[in-house]
Amino acid sequence: MRIQLQQAFRAVILMTFVVFLVQLHQTGDIIHYINPKYEYLSMIGAWLFLILFFTQIFRIWAITKESVHKQAHACQNNHCHDHDHHHHDHGDGSLTLRKIFSYGVIILPLATGLLFPETTLDASIAEKKGIMLSLGNNGQEGNGGGAKPEGEQIPLEHTEPDPNLLTNTMTMEEYESSMEALRKTKDITMSEELYSVYYQQINQEPEVFVGKKITLQGFVYKEEGFSDNEMVLSRFLITHCIADAGVVGFLSQLDGANELAEDTWVEATGELRLQEYEGKEIPTIHITDWKIIEQPSQPYVYPIQIQYL
């Protein structure tokens, strides 16, 4: 009976993937990487790794000559050229530089995942992603007027510690009644789930909301060319994973905005007005009241889907 060290090493890698993914779920840190709506997908990933692990551990021990041969055969058949050593070697004889590099690459995400601390996307990423995503958002012409906005992907804020409480979906009636309420109210609170449903609506027909009072949370982001009293109160909108994050936010006017550092989380109240920015009329907030807050435990917002049926 002999041990196939490379096979054992592969089993360790597969198990580490399982443990890494399960740990992310257990601690809830998974929401720093992906939209909680798709958590189940990464859980499926963890299960598949586990199944592969159970397959793999049977390859570690080769009992008889026949089985060694059979395994080598299966490998050849599958064309994993790196297993030729099964024929004659006792183990790692053919562990070439190339193979070490391959394993190094596979281990890389596990190593950085376990060794590096988690961070939240901030203004430096917003700058690379381009804040024009948010400011350009109102450019979705062709949709204004009588268009029906029911099926929009609408950002929905999660500030609850347990994002599973929020389902990311809304029925048509829920959506319509919240839009109705939004048009009527004079005092908009961008709170909890309704935050981002509102965001989309306000950007679509900003003229309806001019003069209304609005309260919201966001981190401070500034673009080149902003004047001393301008800043953007922004959030990241995550569709699947943070790599597809887009920046959403309101251009805000506040005397002394230049003293607020980027990435500061602020809760602010102000009046909605229209302002020209790079040739477009966009909704802006003239802040009257504000305070610095801690970063919310769930800093990102997610699009929600309207259930048509």
Partner: peptide, 26 residues
């Protein structure tokens, strides 16, 4: 993890890197 300290942008890159993988692996 407590010992290592690297520029923040490396950590951001790592988060993006891992999130792409976590999304793609299943």
């Amino acid at each position: 993890e407590k010992i290592i300290e690297l520029p923040k942008s490396i950590y951001h890159m790592n988060m993006l890197f891992l999130s792409i993988l976590i999304e793609a692996l299943p």
